[in-house]
Amino acid sequence: MTLILSVGAVGLLLIGIAGIVLSAHVLRIIFSIALLESGANLLLLLSSFQAGAVAPIRLKDGFPAVMADPVPQALVLTAIVIGVGVLALALALAMRILAAHGTLDAREIRQAMDEAIAARAGVPPEGGGQAPRSGPDRIPAGEVGGHD
């Protein structure tokens, strides 16, 4: 049981990391973060998991033999709430980005951001190394720009 859960936790973490690294779409990256968080939460629960343990509540015939540790459960509850807040904020930012740039393609957004920063600073955008992305776009993108 513990083994299956551990494999599940590590699997969720790996899927999340792969999603963040490999996706080019902002929404997919945000959902990957959600997966990553669930993996970490599961890992936290597993840190003192005992198969068959029950809540440490006193009953008529005394305490149960094996009691579940309530601390990690309380921690995970907190972590889930924080995660939801961050997720909502990330989605709100994504909507603002869509309104400003007209696209949710991470690479195009980054390029537009670099150009905007360079334009505001009054220097030509970085030429070497980072910019040339001439590969085929996997996700059809809207028009770049929208900023001034």
Binding site: I17, V26, I33, A90, L93, H101, M113, I117, H147, D148
Partner: peptide, 18 residues
């Protein structure tokens, strides 16, 4: 326009969340 600010913040948020 705000676009660059939001993009920079979101990228910061992603790194921070990880």
């Amino acid at each position: 326009g705000g676009g660059a600010v939001f993009a920079a913040t979101l990228r910061y948020l992603i790194v921070s969340a990880v």
